[in-house]
Design a protein around this nucleic acid. Structure first.
Length: 443
DNA sequence: GGAAAGACTTGGAAAAATATTT
DNA sequence: AAATATTTTTCCAAGTCTTTCC
């Protein structure tokens, strides 16, 4: 037993397989952890002020004659603007071959990936990051996004080009520096600054800017709380994309998306048929309009089968009878499924020949349905690989979210789950106009 | 001065709990 | 109430970064 105010752990031991240190620590909702979480975000917030000087410094150093200085500047740009991790060296015999900024190799860079030739300033970066998550993005260094500070993107591109030339594929791009040099370099700008702080800073800043942008749109105040939460999640998504937080698409999700796709095709085919009906009606050929078929008959059969299955189950005493009853029940359910499919496939049809008014009304209805389900599908597809949770738990200052909720009269539980509310208890008391900026660092 | 150890944060998968649809 | 879909929680490995050791 000992008392050591410098450390947070309650117990520590060596795990017997890989000989790694293990710790027992207080839970995330403890005030102890809360305090260090708060200081993490406060440190990142101080960057709001310091970032100007840092960017100015590396802009100049990008053109330095000294290799080390130049590489430090280029790497800092990458960490600041592309939100990469620092990328510590590790033993590739023992561990997975994953990389970050400092350990990037020439083979991870594809210049002019689409062979556009000429003055192309694109690089496709492709590598496995933490947890072997794929990072694959094409960066256009010529775009305004990277050049608002007159020409920095272009300069970085030139540097990277040079750093990759005359090297074999397996050589490191930033061969003159390593993470501890980079972190030491960063310390001169701000006490306690290290590479990871940029991720926290950029994530929090992005969230705040995105949320503010949305609040400034004209119709914002007309939105319901639920609609505002959707916008919050969209902002959260921007952050997750920035940090490359991904999830693998499960088999179930895959099939779900597929079936949504087929549903959509059915709907649009039905709309086409409805249009045809309208023409037929106008031409006085109403007898050619297809009507609903077999639905009632099948519905009755299904009801009967289900009832019978239930009776069989109630009666069954022996195992054999029970098995039979279950089998029958499964068949009945299959039939029921058929019925729903049939119903869906002729949902646009009528029992009796419709009037053109009816057809018009249904057409409008179908149009709405199609737009909605198109949007739904696109949304699902766009987001199937993005994980929002990680940035919410680790990167976005919770006070931004709390203040946003207060300003917009959105209950906090729409945004933070129970555990997150506990974890971020320290952040709950901020004012509605609270801002993530350099001033709050002293709170 | 550089490598290894130690301490703490960050990461997605899978399980579990809830919500929604049928 | 059952089936499905979505969200939350749990789990522990894989990172980062500072301190210690040689």
């Amino acid at each position: 037993v000992r008392h050591d105010p410098r450390s947070q752990w309650l117990a520590t031991w060596k795990e017997n397989i890989n000989n790694q240190s293990k710790y027992m620590q207080l839970a995330a909702q403890s005030s102890f952890k809360g305090k260090s979480d708060r200081s993490k975000y406060n440190k990142a917030a101080r960057l709001c002020e310091k970032i100007v000087a840092i960017r100015k410094a590396y802009k100049r150093a990008l053109k330095s004659k000294d290799d080390e200085t130049k590489q430090l500047a280029t790497a800092t740009w990458v960490i600041d603007r592309l939100a990469l991790r620092v990328g510590g060296e590790k033993d590739t015999d023992e561990e997975a071959d994953t990389v970050g900024c400092c350990s990037l190799r020439v083979e991870h860079f594809h210049f002019d990936p689409n062979s556009e030739g000429g003055d192309n300033k694109e690089i496709e970066l492709e590598f496995l990051g933490k947890d072997s998550m794929l990072f694959k993005q094409t960066i256009n260094f010529g775009s305004d996004l990277y050049n608002e500070n007159n020409g920095m993107g272009i300069q970085v591109f030139k540097n990277l080009q040079k750093l990759c030339s005359k090297k074999s594929k397996s050589e490191q791009v930033f061969d003159a520096i390593n993470p501890s040099m980079l972190n030491n370099h960063l310390k001169q700008f701000m006490e306690g600054l290290s590479a990871k702080v940029f991720r926290t800073y950029n994530a929090s800043k992005t969230l705040q800017d995105e949320l503010r942008k949305k609040e400034e749109t004209g119709s914002w105040n007309n939105l319901t709380a639920a609609q505002k939460v959707v916008e919050y999640n969209n902002a959260n998504r921007e952050v997750a994309i920035l940090c490359n937080h991904q999830r693998t698409v499960s088999k179930a999700q895959e099939t779900q998306l597929e079936s949504l796709g087929t549903k959509l095709t059915t709907l649009s085919n039905q709309r086409k048929e409805l249009k045809r009906f309208l023409k037929l009606l106008n031409a006085g050929k109403s007898e050619k309009i297809r009507l609903k078929k077999d639905e009632k008959k099948l519905a009755e059969a299904v009801a009967k089968a289900l009832e019978k299955a239930k009776k069989m189950k109630d009666k069954a005493k022996t195992n054999e009878e029970k098995i039979k009853a279950t089998e029958f029940d499964e068949k009945a359910k299959l039939k029921r499924k058929e019925l729903t499919e049939l119903k869906f496939s002729q949902a646009h049809l009528w029992e009796k020949t419709p009037t053109s008014d009816q057809v018009i009304r249904k057409l409008e209805n179908w149009k709405k349905k199609i737009t909605k389900s198109e949007l739904d599908l696109k949304h699902k597809d766009d987001n199937k690989e993005v994980a929002l949770g990680t940035s919410k738990i680790n990167y976005m200052d919770p006070r931004i979210s709390v203040a946003w909720c207060k300003r917009n009269e959105v209950p906090i539980e729409k945004v933070f789950s129970k555990t997150l509310r506990d974890k971020f208890n320290w952040a709950m008391a901020v004012e509605p106009d609270w801002e993530f900026n350099a001033k709050i660092a002293n709170e």
